[in-house]
């Protein structure tokens, strides 16, 4: 295990943290197990790869990914709310459909590289800021080696602050109320179904932006990029909320972000030790571990700093 691997894990963890923020909205706030994620994550990548290859601006590609993700989430919501299909199935339908959509977006190829093109990690601005390449004699001591991490963390912080602000707005309260108690939303004379659709749309925008960053980071889009992303996001949310969510002064969104980084680090560590053919098996066992450990009351380990009044 060298420093490069560690930074690689942090990079990936921070990229997944953006997705985890989205999954936090559906899974934790709305209580909706949204499988659209496995389709909307590569959707962001596909849109990005297509735009960058067409000579588009990488930042514009992220914005376009967000819009595409919003639309995907919106459709999942419509399938669930208006056509009355169960939550899991709505997500599966959308995920399945998106596979073909992604295929078409990248021109019916299994992968689409963006090598040699400008990305948010590598453009004239970052080259000026971080230098052209790593210094030869002092590896990992120049800012260049942290350029991806710094860029992702900036995105992450901006998105987190936006989400926090939104959750404190009236509309955010309505979203919280919808996940908490739909009856209250109805008695507030609000269409709860629309609130759900809105939540799914926002969540998948986050997921697609994460997919866009993922594609730009890997410099290639793969049609299979989405596989297992729901599990990663879910694990991040569960780890984050269960371990850090109980500590005072740590916002749930921050907890989820830390969860994403920790889970990615664990997976990276584990995968470095095991051969590639059992990779998915290891990931599955890790996820199971997270779920089981999530049931252990952290409060009994004196981790919790909440006072008795907040029992629930």
């Amino acid at each position: 295990m060298n420093l490069e691997t560690v930074i690689g894990a942090l990079n990936l963890g921070s990229i997944y943290a953006v997705m985890a923020l989205g999954i936090y909205i559906t899974y934790k706030i709305l209580d909706f197990p949204d499988l659209t994620v496995d389709g909307s994550f590569p959707l962001g990548g596909a849109v990005t790869a297509a735009i960058i290859n067409a000579g588009g601006n990488p930042a514009a590609a992220i914005a376009a990914s967000a819009i595409a993700g919003t639309f995907a989430g919106f459709l999942t919501g419509v399938i669930h709310v208006k056509l009355k299909i169960r939550d899991l199935l709505s997500g599966i339908i959308m995920m399945t459909a998106l596979y073909s959509v992604n295929f078409i977006i990248v021109g019916s190829k299994a992968s689409l590289p963006v090598t040699g093109k400008d990305t948010v990690f590598s453009n004239s601005f970052t080259r000026n800021l971080f230098g052209e390449k790593a210094s030869d004699n002092a590896p990992l001591h120049s800012l260049f080696d942290f350029k991806e991490l710094i860029t992702v963390v900036i995105f992450l912080i901006v998105l987190k602050v936006l989400l926090d602000l939104f959750m404190k707005s009236k509309r955010g309260y309505l979203l919280k109320a919808m996940g908490d108690n739909p009856t209250v939303v109805a008695t507030l004379a609000k269409n709860g179904g629309n609130v759900k659709i809105m939540g799914l749309a926002i969540a998948n925008a986050f997921v697609s932006v994460s997919g866009s960053l993922f594609c730009q980071y890997n410099k290639t889009f793969f049609l299979t990029d989405g596989t297992g992303k729901m599990v990663i996001g879910l694990a991040a949310v569960i780890i984050g909320i269960n371990i850090f969510g109980k500590i005072r002064h740590i916002a749930s969104t921050t907890a989820v972000m830390i969860g994403a980084v920790i889970y990615t680090a664990c997976v990276t560590l584990a995968l470095a030790k095991f051969p590639a053919n059992i990779m998915k098996l290891v990931t599955a066992v890790l996820f199971l571990l997270v779920l089981v450990l999530g049931q252990v009351k952290i409060g009994t380990l004196n981790f919790s700093s909440k006072k008795g009044g907040d029992k629930k």
């Binding site: 939104f166 404190k168 707005s169 009236k170 509309r171 955010g172 309260y173 309505l174 008695t187 507030l188 004379a189 609000k190």
Partner: peptide, 12 residues
């Protein structure tokens, strides 16, 4: 806030 718009202004 019942009957009013649930917009982007502060919830409380």
């Amino acid at each position: 806030n019942k009957g009013k718009r649930f917009g982007f202004s502060s919830g409380v």
